[in-house]
Amino acid sequence: MLRFFLSRVATAVPAFFIIVALAFFLMRLAPGGPFDTERALDPEIAKNLRHIYRLDLPLMQQFWLYLQSLAHGELGPSLHWRDFTVSELFAKALPISAALGAKAMLVAIIAGTALGLVGAMSKVRIGPHAVDGAAIFGIVLPIFVVAPLLQLGLGLTLHVLPVGGWNDGAWQNQVLPVTTLALPQIAIVARLMQAALIDALAMPHIRTLRAFGMPGYHIYVHALRAAFAPVVSYLGLAAGNVLTGSVVVETIFGIPGMGRYFVDGALGRDYTLVMGTVIVVAAAVLLFNLIVDLILAWLDPRVRYDSRPR
């Protein structure tokens, strides 16, 4: 298991490095710069600014300097919000986004699993189809449609929940964004769970348990363990989906999370801010996938062997 863990970390590190390099150079390839404004800046001032932020150095040297500061945990000063460093900006925004994403994932796992279980266990023939059909709605409806609908219904018409804002993370303000973010994930997890569970329940080793007259809960423990593998594999992808979804959700609900830095940073050519978000997102996705791999290996002993390169 230790070897498995180390080999997965060993592949994650170069992946992280490649992402950082790609983001750095692609951003510089895009036309325009951080100090371009409607009116042309005085050339002297622009030159000065570029010098202060060391944007006049050769690109490779800039990259090297950036990696050095990154090694010290420094994400550099923001080029747009000039009084803040990127780290300072993130210190406020990241916990909000992380809380939002984590809650959405948690809701998706719990509700999705429960729905899938209900569908697979249902004695009526229509049961699994009902779950599938409902799930299709969750998958098809885009976040930017669901969010305003929820705002309209629960916020403006029924007045039970606030339409937007963060309000220091009061639970009333979190319900709608978390629901919006979780809904498509619940649907996908439910479908995966139901299909995997129906397959698992038809496996010969489950028939063995039935032939031994084992109690129902015991049979479901075995079937669930087999069924969790595809669901857990998907969760790695889901982490990425939730992150991109959060950009939209945070914008619609006016939440001061990481989402707006994605957009503002990219549009304003705020190199350091963009790099900062890329690094945080990449690290989060890589970490989550590492966790997913470890859970998969724990669930299925064969993964620890099969994953070895041939």
Binding site: P204, T208, R210, H222, R225, R302
Partner: peptide, 25 residues
């Protein structure tokens, strides 16, 4: 009542020993 008999008084061995055991335990 049937489950109470199965495994205790009546037991079964299946053909495919790979798939009749749970690979995850």
């Amino acid at each position: 009542r049937l489950d109470a008999l199965l495994g205790r008084r009546i037991a079964m061995v299946f053909q495919e020993p790979m798939s009749s055991l749970d690979p995850l335990f």
